[in-house]
Amino acid sequence: MNKIKNLADLRDLKDKLQTKTKLRDKSENPEQMVQVKVAMATCCIASGSRETMNYIVDELDKRNIDAVVTQTGCMGYCYAEPTVEVIMPGKEPVVFGYVDTKKADEIIEKYIKSGILVEGIIPVNYKKIEQ
């Protein structure tokens, strides 16, 4: 059975990242950070939320944006999957629908970086399927 047992590799990685995280101090102050929640229920996964999530995790890091990416359950907007909720510090949460990688790029570039709203927002008072 092969294991990740290459301790030297992991230690190198650790040393490299420790310097990086010192500059960032992740999750010390979650209210001050951008929070991105990707819905990850059956409907979301079948519509491609895994790819959206991966793209967001990679791109936020590449573009040096301090953010916490987590997953959430089905928000009830199954028709608009994949859905992504973005909470900017001090602002109301915004839910975007039909977020493929192209849309995710737009959300990161415009909304997260410059605060400009992009198309595809699901209004909070929008009817859910049980209503």
Partner: peptide, 28 residues
Amino acid sequence: EGFEVNTAEIRSQLEGVSLASREVLDYI
């Protein structure tokens, strides 16, 4: 044949560095 990934073990090796760092995720 086979292999295993144990995140508890990896976490203890990383000593405080988050498992969610992109470099760690890519490594895994």
